[in-house]
């Protein structure tokens, strides 16, 4: 299976130049063709594993703990206004 590098790059929000596109597309197709080996296996009745341990029902109590982390976070943020983070707007049609 081949991937559409432009679509995946947009979905990943990574801008690629033409040279990178060619190289990465090539690398990734090579890897994708390697992983085709999984098709040899009959896995119709196999359950997928998302967690290797059979842990379940891990909760926390509904308790508020005031955190001061925001002060340091805002101090190092790329752009703030008061205690807001500031980001560029979406420019329509750009």
């Amino acid at each position: 299976m081949e991937m559409d590098i432009n679509k995946v790059a947009l979905l990943s929000r990574i801008k690629l130049d033409e040279e990178e596109k060619v190289k990465l597309q090539n690398d990734l197709n090579q890897i994708l063709s390697y992983v085709e080996q999984l098709n040899e296996l009959d896995i119709a009745d196999v359950e997928p594993t998302s967690h290797v341990l059979n842990l379940e029902n891990v909760y926390r109590e509904d308790k508020v703990i005031q955190s001061e982390a925001y002060k340091e976070v805002l101090k190092h943020a790329p752009d703030i206004h008061g205690s807001y983070f500031k980001v560029p707007k979406v420019i329509e049609g750009s």
Binding site: V73, H76, P78, V87, P88, I91
Partner: peptide, 17 residues
């Protein structure tokens, strides 16, 4: 958005990319 490197941009999507 919140921390680390940000490429300056006037447009949000361009900033991400």
């Amino acid at each position: 958005v919140q921390y680390g490197y940000r490429h300056p941009s006037k447009d949000l999507v361009e900033m991400y990319m």
